[in-house]
Simulated assay, not measured.
Amino acid sequence: MLPPRNPDERLKARGADTRPEGRFEAQRRVHEADGWDIPEDDRLLRTEVVTERPRSIITRNTSPDISFDRSINPYRGCEHGCIYCYARPTHAYLGLSPGLDFETRITAKPDAAVLLARELARPSYRPAPIALGTNTDPYQPVESKLAIMPGILRVLSDWNHPVTLVTRGQTVLRDLDLWAELAAKGMAAVGVSVTTLDADLARALEPRAPAPATRLRMIRRLAAAGVPVRVMVAPVIPVLTEPEIEAILTAAREAGATTASMIPLRLPLEVAPLFRDWLLRHRPGMAAHVMNRVAAMRGGRDNDPRFGHRFRGEGVEAQLALQRFRLARRRLGYDTGSAPLDCSRFGPPPRAGDQLSLF
Rank of each mutant, 00 (worst) to 15 (best):
P162Y: 05
D8Y: 08
I237D: 00
T134M: 15
H161Q: 12
P129Y: 02
R329K: 13
P150I: 13
L320R: 15
P64Y: 00
A213R: 13
L156C: 00
D200G: 05
D342R: 14
D302L: 08
R76W: 13
G169Q: 05
D17E: 12
D111N: 12
V49E: 05
R283S: 03
R203D: 04
P350E: 05
R118W: 06
G191V: 08
L165V: 09
F346K: 01
P228W: 06
M291T: 07
P74I: 10
R174C: 06
P207Y: 03
L100N: 05
P39F: 09
E143C: 03
S157T: 11
R23S: 09
A131H: 15
G151C: 10
Y84S: 04
R266V: 00
A296G: 07
T336P: 05
D177A: 14
G333F: 02
F102W: 13
V294R: 10
F102L: 10
I152V: 13
D342V: 01
M232W: 13
R283Q: 13
A13I: 00
P162H: 04
V166I: 15
R46Y: 03
A223D: 09
L132A: 11
R55K: 15
T214K: 15
C82K: 05
R293P: 04
T241Q: 02
L332E: 06
A209G: 01
I38R: 15
P349E: 07
P207Q: 10
P141D: 05
P268G: 02
D354G: 06
P3H: 00
N292S: 14
A328L: 06
S144D: 10
P3V: 03
A339Q: 07
T214L: 09
R154Q: 14
L96Y: 11
H91T: 08
D42A: 11
P349Y: 10
A112H: 07
E103Q: 03
T167R: 09
Q323N: 14
A147I: 10
A223M: 01
L197Q: 02
A213G: 05
A204T: 05
P7K: 12
